[in-house]
């Protein structure tokens, strides 16, 4: 059985649905990428699962952790899961740390909460964690405040804080988007190393397909609040089946090929208040016909082991040609 299992998860903000029934399983120890553009619901899925959305959000469906239901569970029950079983780090590390508390105290809070460590023991453990995530001279800098660290270092501190509860699953929500290229590389490396060392599972939420492909085992692509495709990383990147996934790949400039014009996806992401009928991607899709604009495709298993929600997935020959 999957460690975390999401079934038909739906979220609406002030009556506007933004997540239209997500099914997702995470096994112990695996790394899953969640890919999509802003507003596709990739972050909302996990904020909803952990009860971190603001009060105006209406969440239905089911999220189970080792069989224990989280949606509709008591606040105390969900608080026991957060940080201890499932930890989360965010996009903007500098504002994700509380500016008025020393970082040692912020890590210590997790240690006290999840491992009962206090005083000198907590301090020693916090220093060990900061060392582990690569903060230089941690013993001295544990008493500094967040503003005294750079963005990359703040993200390391966030990761140390997440590790403090020894979680089974780490949700990394765009953890490198706000960072510079060489720092991004450092953080990706750190996350991959920590996963290897601790054996925790990881969900890596990102719009950066390259980053996802470099550290995940499999990936799920979302569009307008739905999953449109999922597959093993190799298969997905070798031969994307959904026209949207394919469009995303084509839109990214290639470092090695000719400096040719890019192939954008025409049009824009639909407004959740006015979703098109049928497949939400159909207005931008080159393969869509009248049927796509009326009926909504379900996520269906494919011969290559992946799943895709499209009536006319890109067939194999054309894919090979494209990647030849």
């Amino acid at each position: 059985m999957a460690f975390v299992s999401i079934r038909d998860l739906r979220v609406a903000f002030s009556g506007v649905p933004v997540l239209h029934g997500i099914d997702l399983d995470i096994a112990r120890g695996e790394a899953v990428g969640l890919v999509g553009e802003s507003g596709c619901g990739k972050s909302v899925t996990w904020l909803a699962a952990l009860g971190l959305l603001p009060g105006k959000a209406r969440v239905t469906g089911s999220v189970t952790l080792d069989g224990e239901e989280l949606i509709g569970a008591s606040r105390r029950a969900v608080e026991k899961v957060r940080g201890a079983r499932i930890a989360m780090i965010f996009q903007d590390p500098s504002s994700s740390l509380n500016p008025v508390h020393r970082i040692g105290r912020q890590i210590g809070e997790s240690l006290a909460l999840h491992r009962g460590l206090r005083g000198a023991a907590a301090r020693a453990e916090a220093i060990r964690l900061l060392d582990m995530v690569g903060i230089p001279s941690a013993a001295k800098r544990i008493d500094l405040y967040p503003h005294e660290f750079s963005g990359g270092q703040c993200q390391r501190i966030m990761i140390a804080m997440a590790l403090a509860g020894q979680p089974d699953l780490l949700i990394a929500d765009e953890p490198t988007t706000a960072l510079d290229a060489t720092i991004q590389a450092q953080i990706l490396d750190l996350l991959a190393r920590l996963r290897h060392e601790t054996g925790m599972a990881m969900v890596f939420i990102s719009h950066d397909l390259g980053a996802v492909s470099s550290i995940c085992d499999r990936a799920t692509v979302m569009y307008a609040g739905r999953i449109v495709e999922r597959a093993e990383i190799g298969a997905l990147f070798r031969a994307p089946m959904h026209p949207y996934t394919r469009g995303l790949f084509d839109a990214i400039p290639d470092l090695d090929a000719e400096r040719a014009r890019l192939a954008p996806i025409e049009g824009t992401v639909p407004d959740p208040k006015a979703l098109p009928a049928g497949c939400a991607f159909s207005p931008r899709c080159v393969r869509a016909n009248g049927f796509c604009r009326m009926e909504e495709p379900d996520l269906k298993p494919q011969p290559n082991g992946g799943e895709v929600a499209c009536f006319y997935p890109i067939p194999a020959p054309q894919r090979e040609e494209a990647f030849a």
Partner: peptide, 13 residues
């Protein structure tokens, strides 16, 4: 370092 830090599709770390 800058060029090598660009995550490339289909290439690990």
């Amino acid at each position: 370092a800058l060029v090598s830090s660009i995550p490339k599709v289909g290439q690990g770390l």
